[in-house]
């Protein structure tokens, strides 16, 4: 049996034309490719920092 109150919660106001600009600006456009790039970058940085730490230890 349908619970009206619960079902009503599933409905949300539609975007009005006045809100369009704000919605476009605030839209999160981060995709999986962005995440991949950031992950690769982090990985490189980690590798770079670990290599430099090893070199410093060897010099010591």
């Amino acid at each position: 049996m349908i619970n009206f109150e619960e079902e009503l919660k599933k409905f949300h106001p539609s975007l009005e034309i006045e809100d369009a600009e704000e919605a476009i600006y605030n839209q999160d456009l981060t995709d999986m490719a962005d995440l991949l790039v950031s992950l690769v970058k982090e990985e490189k940085e980690t590798e770079h920092s670990s290599e430099s730490a090893t070199e410093e230890n060897e010099e010591d």
């Binding site: 009005e16 034309i17 369009a20 919605a23 476009i24 839209q27």
Partner: peptide, 13 residues
């Protein structure tokens, strides 16, 4: 489906 503002958003992007 009647969500024309959402449609506009997608087309503008």
């Amino acid at each position: 489906t009647g969500e024309y503002v959402a449609a506009l958003n997608e087309w503008v992007i």
